[in-house]
Design a binder for these strands. Structure first.
Lengths: 163, 163
DNA sequence: CAGAACGTTCAATTGCGATTGAACAAATAA
DNA sequence: TTATTTGTTCAATCGCAATTGAACGTTCTG
């Protein structure tokens, strides 16, 4: 990490990096967004890799990823043919699209997965792999899980409106 | 993974394992809970490591972790001096304590972190590390983030009641 | 045109944390 | 008592994905 960053930015970059790391995303991605979030001027790939001590490759893949998430935008800086990047500051929107692209598909898949599981359960019952008691037990537990699932599905749109 | 598991349990175990993996938790942890969630009878450490093809060590650490999360309970099986484990089926409660122990502390820390950042910002301003414009820009962005933070803080208790 | 600047791609490396095997301690049995 | 069973701890290993360096294609410049 470069020493020439003001301490507040340095700390912010570190925090953003760690946050991404916890979310299972590349740390560099968070660092890049964090750096740009507190940069009044757009930065080039060289600036980014230099300030964060990242390789050119990481800066490139990271910015491209962030672009697909609509977390950054490219801006043209007159007199410089390099790409420059700016953070899109609207975190609310970022959160919303993040939910849309990230959570929601998984939630939907989990519902179809539950159907598969229930189908398998019946198949196991018929094939004799599961006793009557085990069948009933599993069915009850899966049903309980399904109700929770539907609650989450109902909650999230509400939360979305809350923002 | 053992072949002697009925297909519905096998698939459930796999799904639970992957879910934990995505959440940044050990996969084995999810597998163990998944196995027990669909087991009408409590299982011993040997059963668990056998059915899941895990080492004794993994089964031990995994169950202990799950116990601290109140996701399992130990039950005594007469005539067997080994520990046996049962899944606690109330997923709602599990979710609630998970939020309490896992998310909430981080959310609280993020608030104090924000204070630190704002303090650093002022320090940088006074030391001349940040121009007046940069200072204003960063302050605005951090303020925006702080409002989002407080919204999340307000939302979560509401979501909790929803369940 | 040649040469440089810029960004991307991809195989190789690295780092991190889950998993393991072996040694250990505690409890039970013989 | 000694031997066996049971569960934990910890250093070593392994797997996975982030990161890198080098080679590449493209676009600009002189």
């Amino acid at each position: 990490m470069a020493e020439n960053l003001p301490s507040c930015r340095r700390e912010f970059v570190e925090t953003a990096g760690r946050l991404c790391q916890r979310l299972g995303l590349p740390r560099s991605t968070g660092q890049i967004y964090g750096l740009l979030y507190l940069s009044a001027q757009p930065l080039s790939l060289d600036d980014i890799s230099g300030l964060l001590s990242l390789s050119k490759a990481s800066a490139s893949t990271g910015t491209r990823q962030l672009l697909t998430w609509q977390a950054l935008k490219q801006v043209w800086v007159p007199g410089d043919r390099r790409d420059h990047f700016e953070a899109i500051g609207d975190l609310r929107e970022l959160l919303r699209t993040g939910y849309e692209n990230f959570f929601r598909p998984k939630l939907e898949r989990s519902v179809t997965k539950m159907d598969q599981l229930l189908a398998n359960l019946e198949a196991d019952r018929k094939s004799g792999a599961l006793s009557k008691e085990d069948h009933a037990f599993c069915k009850a537990r899966l049903a309980h899980m399904a109700t929770l699932q539907s609650r989450v599905t109902k909650l999230l749109p509400i939360a979305e409106k809350f923002f």
